[in-house]
Design a protein around this nucleic acid. Structure first.
Length: 486
DNA sequence: AAAAAAC
């Protein structure tokens, strides 16, 4: 515990320290490893309540540390059992975290792993699109904390690789998404497998009134913790709108990237094919770009995100697979190539920038036909977004590409081919039918697929884990043993 | 109307 009493600083806001929460020394050590001293507002409010064992519905702006708000108390509450070698629950899953995308599951698992690194608690991540076997092996050995996407978790349950009968804590990350129509059936099935008596935690930056009501039906006497109005955007993000002709959108995106000399920008498209096409267009314009979406193999998805984080590519064009939760350190800019159909997704998309106290830019292009979407967005976030003027942009008819540097010289462009118009799906047929599990070459498992090793003899390369670590991140793609090229 | 999530 801190010797220093809690002090009052500017505006009367108490300066809380992680040391004030009474967390186990092992957890505090992990926090100081990563240089964390002061909790964010959501952490300061939620951690004590979660430690009391209460159900919580937590709403806070993007990039303000919701993951630690549940991860730290989970570790603290499970720790006593972990240290009792004869406890019947020793090898049972006692905390379950559900996320709406595989990449978010991986990221949350990295965080949990880092926070628990000095404890004997074991955690793992379980998600689809990858071989079942390594996951099965780890689950059968026994873990206390599982981070999962719903479908693959149910698969493991059916195969008796995991029992959820001892789960005492359930977290729904991006809870409003987990409760939407697409996820609800799987979610309900999972909940039916859990003990009735358990602690439930839900976190998101967005909660519509309807979802709040639905969420409450999964919670027992919940405490709602809101450090900002639900659906509020993070104020550290500068938002600008550009109204353009529909057919000029991709030229404008290219212009914005060049004019602002953007070195790292995440661009959102509403469709998988749109993401693939825009990435291809930018590549042909000489910009290092890749696409990430649900029609890519999991290896390709991980490789694209990895290449983006490591600066091998400057532009990542994504569908809403990347809209929620992903923490890309110091990402300076997000561009909406399309305005999202769900206004909530706007909040999450732009929330990939301006995280952890940093500033960020969120630029959106739209056309006449998107006016209604824009009205919905501004109504949700209760703000009028600044309308920007494009300077130095000369509208083209979009066919002068062969004049541009980096473009292919003459001849038929790849984007003219029907195959290219079908996006990455077509490329995959070149490599044979889509394979979900079986790696096509020997692969080195990343840490989250490795068997548990006791904290007493920590592996040296756990630098993979903490998002906040100052150590360089290893290339996940490389760990996966190389990817099929072309 | 779209994306995500098992095989």
């Amino acid at each position: 515990m801190s010797e220093t009493p809690t002090t009052i600083e500017d505006g009367g806001a108490p300066t809380v320290r992680f040391a004030d929460f009474g967390l186990a020394p092992e957890i505090q050590r992990a926090l100081s490893d990563q240089g964390y001293v002061h909790p964010t507002p959501i952490q300061a409010k939620a951690i004590p309540i979660v430690l009391q064992g209460r159900d919580v519905m937590g709403a806070a702006q993007t990039g303000t540390g919701k993951t630690a708000s549940f991860s730290l108390p989970i570790i603290q509450l499970l720790l006593p059992h972990a240290n009792t070698s004869m406890s019947p629950a020793r090898h049972a899953v006692r905390a379950l975290v559900l996320t709406p995308t595989r990449e978010l599951a991986i990221q949350v698992a990295e965080n949990v792993k880092a926070y628990a690194q000095h404890t004997p608690l074991r955690s793992t991540v379980v998600f689809g699109g990858m071989d079942m076997k390594p996951q099965t092996e780890i689950l059968r050995r026994g873990v206390e904390i599982v981070i999962a996407t719903p479908g693959r978790l149910l698969d493991h349950v059916e195969q008796k690789n995991i029992s959820l009968a001892q789960v005492q804590m359930l977290v729904m990350d991006e809870a409003d998404r987990m409760l939407d129509m697409g996820f609800l059936p799987d979610l309900q099935r999972i909940i039916n497998l859990l003990p009735k008596k358990r602690q439930n935690l839900m976190f998101s930056a967005t909660f519509s009134p309807e979802i709040k009501k639905l969420a409450s039906s999964f919670l027992n006497d919940p405490l709602t913790i809101e450090v900002a109005r639900s659906n509020a955007t993070n104020t550290s993000i500068t938002q600008v709108l550009y109204k353009v002709d529909e057919e000029q959108k991709r030229n404008v995106v290219e212009h914005l990237i060049r004019a602002r000399d953007l070195k790292q920008v995440l661009v959102f498209s509403n469709t998988k094919i749109g993401a693939s096409r825009l990435a291809r267009y930018l590549e042909q314009a000489g910009i290092k770009a890749s696409a990430i979406h649900g029609d890519k193999t999991q290896q390709e998805r991980i490789a694209a995100l990895d290449a983006f984080k490591n600066g091998e590519i400057d532009v990542l064009v994504a569908t809403d697979v990347a809209a929620r939760g992903l923490d890309i350190t110091d990402l300076p800019c997000v561009i909406n190539y399309d305005l999202p159909y769900n206004a909530e997704d706007y909040v999450h998309r732009i929330g990939r920038t301006g995280r952890a106290g940093a500033t960020g830019d969120a630029l959106s292009v739209y056309s006449d036909k998107d006016e209604r979407l824009l009205v919905d967005i501004e109504k949700l976030i209760k703000q009028t977004i600044t309308r920007g003027e494009l300077t130095g942009f000369s509208p083209s008819r979009g066919v002068e590409r062969s004049e541009r540097p980096g473009d292919r010289r003459g001849g038929r462009r790849e984007s003219d081919s029907p195959r290219a118009e079908r996006g990455e799906r077509a490329e995959r047929t070149d490599r044979g039918p889509r394979s979900y599990g079986a790696p096509r070459r020997e692969k080195i498992d990343p840490w989250f697929l490795k068997p548990y090793e006791p904290a007493a003899a920590p592996r040296k390369d756990t630098s993979a884990a903490p998002a906040a670590s100052s150590k360089p991140k290893p290339k996940l793609a490389a760990l996966l043993g190389g990817l099929p090229k072309q």
